[in-house]
Design a protein around this nucleic acid. Structure first.
Lengths: 238, 238
DNA sequence: CTCGAACCAGATACGTTGTACACAACGAAG
DNA sequence: CTTCGTTGTGTACAACGTATCTGGTTCGAG
């Protein structure tokens, strides 16, 4: 735009002077990208879209991230900075808090559940910190290193699995501009009816008719989490 | 190609006769797509690639699936047909078997862990069957409908979370043609060293030095699963 | 104060993707 | 033989990630 040689000199003089340098930074790229993904989902993340949002040419962000994969890693690290584990809790309270906070993080940034295998394994500073804190919470309980890590990863697996589902529901609801679980079920009703008419799923059908907490996702999450922590506590006598 | 009117008659006569009709079917499309995804990952699934593999024009499969989303659903249902839950087990053995079989399924089809939110929620016949069987296994234990579903989903969440990680590792290993966890760690070593040199992760570092079962993924999976089932059993007295 | 190198963003372009749409070849029915 | 519904083909387009080249800006060394 600023280098448009075909424009008359006088028009060019009218234009605002070129933006001061250093308009971009990893920070700004990360926050902008996260804002896009939070608002419109992971598929709205496009190098071109990001550049447009930054007010910059499509290729400009490539100075700061080597490609889209890099961008995703940057975003992940950026949001994980919000996880803060309070000190002075016992192992169970620590893991529980971590789980609940991770849930909140993943509900706020639903795209976290859709990362590529690469991005899932990315060793970013803020994720390392989370792992360290979890391991610290499990230290001094006479568990060997493998067991400590396994306990942490088990809780982490439950959280990620639960939120994979929870955030998928939430994503579909928002993609279709529905108001909640009820409207989603309305949307799915024809298909569900079709399945039920086959008569192959009587127990499922009974659930559909009698359940009353279908959308109480916090209750479901907490219930599962507490079962898991119970099991861990008794198995290792801690 | 076959309809190229500008070609000389003789050339047209040389061409192989048009393929017999009904070369395509949902079945053939599903198995072909699954084969591609199993061998080369989810990103290798392209409508054009699929068509090429089927020996057909790029738009041909659209007669059978309305788009890529549909194709993914078809693939999911196709592979879930392999889950067979033996009868006559108690609730715990049932859930355990289901979990282990789901793990095997997801290890065999690593792309299952990378599905879009839409595909994750897809209500396909074979997935309905799995849910039904799980609920049947939990029936008659004096649990209310919400709790039954919650227990099933808790176990399912753990399995999916564990395999989200496990299959991400496996996917990266195969993408980079590494031989296993050791080579993956070699690859990541420089980055890990960098983190460790910051001195911020002493407990993690201790784990890295002393752990001996880093790649014993079955042990980790079973351990977590048994903890979870223990917790469920004691909490509900079943 | 000048000059050159290092840095930063812009412009252009290529190959690949999902898919809309119009058309053509076939099998069967009249 | 004609007609028609079904099934696969051909062409086309907008949007994507990103390689590469170009030009303007900044800053430190002389």
């Amino acid at each position: 735009m600023a280098g448009d040689k075909s424009a008359p000199l006088w028009e060019r003089l009218e234009r605002p002077s070129p933006a001061p340098r250093q308009t971009l930074s990893s920070q700004r790229i990360a926050t902008t990208a996260v804002a896009i993904a939070d608002g419109e989902g992971l598929e709205a993340i496009t190098m071109r879209r990001l550049a447009a949002e930054l007010g910059v040419a499509p290729m400009a962000p490539y100075r700061y991230v080597s490609g889209k994969d890099d961008l995703l890693e940057l975003m992940v690290d950026h949001v994980y900075a919000d996880l803060r584990l309070p000190r002075g809790l016992d192992w169970r309270e620590s893991l529980r808090t971590l789980a609940v906070q991770t849930r909140e993080l993943m509900l706020q940034h639903r795209w976290l559940a859709q990362l590529s295998p690469r991005a899932k394994l990315s060793l970013t500073p803020n994720r390392m910190t989370v792992a360290e804190q979890a391991l610290v919470a499990l230290d001094g309980l006479d568990l060997d290193a493998d067991t400590m890590m396994s306990v942490f990863r088990t809780v982490d697996a439950y959280v990620h699995g639960a939120l994979s589902y929870e955030s998928a529901v939430s994503t579909v609801i928002s993609e279709q501009s529905l108001s909640g679980g009820d409207e989603l079920r309305d949307e799915l009703a024809p298909l569900m009816m079709w399945h039920m008419r086959t008569g192959r799923y009587p127990t499922f059908q009974h659930y559909l008719r009698t359940a009353t907490r279908k959308d109480d996702t916090s209750w479901q999450f907490d219930l599962g989490l507490d079962c898991l922590l119970d099991g861990i506590a008794t198995r290792f006598g801690i």
